[in-house]
Amino acid sequence: MPELSKESRRFIDDLRLYLFSSGKNDQEIKEIAEELEAHLEEAERNGKPIEQVVGESPREYMEMISSEMKFDKKAWLKYVPLIIFGAISFSVIGQLMENMRLSYSYVFVGGSLAVSILFILLVFSVFKYTASRQVSRVKEFLLMMIPIFVNMVLFMALIFWDMYTELPGIELGVTASMIVGAILFVILIGISVWAKTAVLLVMLAAVHVPDLLLKMTSLGLEARLITGLLATYAMIGLYFFYTVKKMKKTEAVEG
């Protein structure tokens, strides 16, 4: 199979990302991407420029395609709890490793949920923006830092608020904490099997292993927390890129 030009390749990748971030169905995204890829390839063989296929504005074209596709609630029901549950399990396992018992203020729990949802929405908005406007890789990276940064600041504010003020909440003893931790871990494995992805488990390990190592250093609690958070969000960002890359690779094999 002859290779697509770089420009067409990029358009197809951007289209996938755009549709994925718009909450469209994976299978439908695959279908239209394949069809357009075949079209672009044949057009290139006949010496046509990409503009003749997608028009002058790739963004308008992506919007046109997107508007013909339904919002896939099922995909969102799969991703959103996965991410929120992931955030919770990071915190729970972190606390268990820190002092073997769980204590949460209601403010922290509610705040974490709100911040996580905001993070998802921001990431998807940035994806849609960069995918439809053909921005440079550098600009794409810088734009991606916005949700990561906003989220970090909000999470840090939440952590410090929680640490330095007496807030009402729940506190569990060691046994109860361990049981909650074990249940969480089982659910985590269950979700991973159901969603057919080991990403949460991989990320958990990736975040807590450095944390364990950081503990052995002379860094203070704050510095460790900040480093840990940085790693978490960098990895969530990486995960999205990885998902799209993997989608692309599977197709290359099938096609």
Partner: peptide, 12 residues
């Protein structure tokens, strides 16, 4: 008409 226009129409 740019060629790709047909795909959203076909989808519908």
């Amino acid at each position: 008409v740019s060629e790709g226009t047909i795909y959203p129409l076909l989808m519908r």
